[in-house]
Design a protein around this nucleic acid. Structure first.
Lengths: 130, 130
DNA sequence: AGCAACTATTGACAAAACAGCTATAGTCAT
DNA sequence: ATGACTATAGCTGTTTTGTCAATAGTTGCT
């Protein structure tokens, strides 16, 4: 417990924002189209994720497959590089995505409330510290 | 790794939504007014937190005090029950709150993007699974 | 033929995050 | 005194998450 600065988010990786955010993001991307791990690795950057080690994505995919949310097959067409797995959403994965969406809507509601309360409190002339 | 149902959020506690969400919530509440741990424990429920063990809140408060974000004194007026600590935001805590707010705005942006993409994809007639 | 660069995947490890349980203790009403 | 309620702190175990290292196929140079 060091006292460096205000201690704001000391440490390394801070790409994470919401608990298990990578799962709904991957499910959504696979909901749109089947894809390889490497492709997904690039696409998740649009959701504020990424920048971290590829193993994070591959692990998430493997775990989701173990849960039955996605299936994978080796890509038939050997485009370039080693054989790649093509991940595809299952019906169960589709259901999980729906639940994740509902969950994230709730999360957004709470974040919104915090942000609104903060701004509202600021406007009341409490902007200056005590 | 069990296969119970779709495995949706199996386990115990799931009050958590955003990483370290309890910290900005506590900072915001203390920004509004100094308070006791027990009071805060009740107030955080409005932000989707709570339902968990009180030790979670007290631990968070102690850690934030160690970081210098809050200070505490024993309450002079012995209202009822054992002596209570009154927590108060420090200037540093105020700064950290500002950064947390910015961080949460960014988080909300990403959640919004996911939710928008999902709905947009649904409207395109992809509502039915494959 | 050899090697670097790129694509792809997996496993092991370490640290951070987090909640539950337990212990302690003061006050108040019965 | 005893149980209920308020209040705080310490310990422990699990989950989550990120980094590093290992393996390996393909392509393009040289």
């Amino acid at each position: 417990m060091q006292q460096a600065g205000s201690g704001w988010r000391r440490g390394r990786g801070w790409t994470r924002r919401v608990v298990r955010f990578i799962e709904p993001v991957l499910l959504l991307l696979l909901h749109q189209r089947a894809a390889h791990g490497y492709t997904l690795l690039e696409e998740i950057t649009s959701y504020g994720l990424g920048g971290f080690d590829p193993s994070v994505v591959y692990r998430a995919l493997r775990e989701m497959e173990a849960q039955g949310w996605v299936t994978s097959v080796w890509d038939a067409q050997e485009t370039q590089g080693p054989p790649r797995r093509v991940y595809r959403l299952t019906v169960m994965g589709d259901e999980v995505l729906v639940r994740y969406v509902g969950d994230l809507e709730e999360t957004r509601t709470h974040i919104d409330k915090l942000l609104r309360t903060y701004r509202h409190h600021m406007e009341d002339g409490e902007g200056d510290f005590h």
